[in-house]
Write a protein that binds this DNA or RNA. Structure first.
Length: 430
RNA sequence: GGAGAGGUGGCAGAGCGGUUGAAUGCGGCGGUCUUGAAAACCGCUGAACCUUUGCGGGUUCCGUGGGUUCGAAUCCCACCCUCUCCUCCA
């Protein structure tokens, strides 16, 4: 959620950002109009209440309270009617009311883009910031991961479809073990870099989901239990970011760095026909997520460090990748700035997203109310939140299968993972 | 799922329906004292929003939402959550 004060004071900045995202900026004027209407309604309400409080207070101090109450009755009745009138008006306009038009507009307004975000409407305009590693030269034709996996017996798409339908995978033998090894490896590295490991709930309340900005009104991306009103997390970013919601942290406690392994559940409703083969796009996948809570002035420097933490994992796995600065049109609702890490997939002859690292500035912190105090006498301020995958486990498995495949159909195990697999250096079957 | 207890400020813990945004203690901040520190003593110490150039003024908040009343932390109703016991269960 944007700061309404920023919209009031610097509407041009909001318009500019919205335009860069490809939105019609006229909603800004609508917000300004509704906001000023709301505030005048609020002033009317508060004045009437102040007067009523004054009269009531006088009754409380009178010697004969009953008589005083009787005398004041006509005046108080009139005030009560006034208050009721203003109250209805203010409530209908208030950004706090879940069905007010102002709230709807604010809810639908994405974060302000950072000036460093490149212009552009879609991923073709993303800017490659750096590239690491050299794609391996194969002396045979590299197979896609689903072929490798099925032939080795580590991936089973048919049985997954039997159990659950499309976009699910059964991992078998070394496939399952490698997945577990990756989770362990990522978490160990995160711990070494100062992240506190969290094992969060995988189901969260509507309020939690809303507070981190995942629950935009038109989003049907999530699985949910409508009875209990719980949502299956689409990423551990949700519980990790909301962990300190409605809290005021001590300034000394920042930055806070958290890492969590979790399954992630996504409907992928808008992706029909995309990545239908293999485990690139699944309804259920695993991920280690990294989240930072920082002081406002530190968040952009922290984004570089967060991205670097994720990159290090790819370097240790010796997987070639590149880093893309997402353009305005490709940057998500919550983010002021995002880097995508894209890993090389030889079968596709393409770099594919394996991590997304974003600085959400105060956008999520405002909704979730995550604040800190600079010093004991200071006022609470909103923290900045950042999140990034470190890394997506399924896609890392894809990258390993494809990049480490051999002509005989076997797959070598990256050196850093071997200790997690009892020293196994090569996968020759499940 | 059944029974009971409870939800008040950073924490602990009071609170006859009327200057109670809330006693008291702890913690925190500032000061006195001290070579320094501790102790002791004194003072200050919740949040959001509206308004004001500023000083300030106002409204709201004691789990949430309703209700009674001129007036509610205090009375009534519903809901949520936590804890204890039982039941069940990985």
């Amino acid at each position: 959620m944007l700061d309404i004060v920023v919209v009031r004071r610097d509407p041009d900045r909001v318009r500019r950002s919205a335009k860069r995202r490809g939105l019609d900026p006229s909603f800004v004027d609508e917000i300004l109009r509704l906001d000023s209407e709301y505030r005048s309604a609020l002033a009317g309400l508060e004045n009437a209440k102040a007067e009523k409080n004054l009269v009531s207070g006088r009754i409380g101090k009178a010697a004969d309270k009953a008589a005083a109450a009787r005398d004041a009755k006509p005046q108080l009745d009139a005030l009560a009617a006034q208050i009721a009138h203003h109250e209805a008006l203010a409530k209908a306009l208030s950004p706090e009311s879940s069905d007010s038009p102002l709230r709807e507009l604010l809810d639908g307004t994405p974060n302000l883009l950072d000036d460093s975000v490149p212009d552009g409407s879609d991923e073709d305009a993303n800017v490659i910031v750096r590239t690491w590693g050299t794609p391996r030269a194969f002396d045979f034709s590299p197979k896609p991961h689903w072929e490798i996996g099925e032939e080795l017996g580590v991936l089973d798409f048919e049985r997954a479809a039997k159990l659950s339908g499309s976009r699910f995978t059964v991992l078998r033998g070394m496939g399952a073990r490698l997945t577990r090894a990756l989770a362990q490896f990522f978490l160990d590295r995160a711990a070494a870099r100062g992240y506190v490991e969290i094992s969060p709930p995988y189901l969260v309340s509507r309020e939690t989901m809303w507070s981190t900005g995942q629950l935009s009104k038109f989003s049907d991306a999530m699985f949910q239990d409508s009875g209990a009103d719980l949502f299956m997390i689409p990423t551990a970013e949700v519980p990790l970011t909301a962990l300190h919601g409605k809290e005021i942290l001590a300034g000394d406690d920042l930055p806070r760095k958290y890492a969590a392994y979790s399954p992630c559940f996504r409907k992928e409703a808008g992706a029909a026909g995309k990545d239908t083969r293999g485990l690139i796009r699944q309804h259920q996948f695993e991920k280690v997520e990294l989240v930072w809570l920082t002081r406002p002035e530190d968040s952009f420097a922290s984004l570089e460090r967060l991205a670097n933490d994720a990159e290090t994992l790819l370097q240790e796995l010796e997987l070639p990748y590149r880093v893309a600065a997402l353009c305005a049109g490709d940057t998500g609702f919550n983010a002021a700035k995002t880097y995508d890490l894209e890993v090389w997939l030889p079968a596709q002859q393409a770099y594919r997203e394996i991590s997304s690292c974003s600085n959400c500035t105060d956008f999520q912190a405002r909704r979730a109310s995550i604040r800190f105090r600079r010093d004991a006498s200071g006022k609470p301020e909103l923290v900045h939140t950042l999140n990034g995958s470190g890394l997506a486990i399924g896609r890392t498995l894809v990258a390993i299968l494809e990049n480490y495949q051999e002509a005989d159909g076997s797959v070598r195990v990256p050196a850093v993972l071997q200790p997690y697999l009892g020293g196994t250096g090569r996968i020759t079957g499940a």
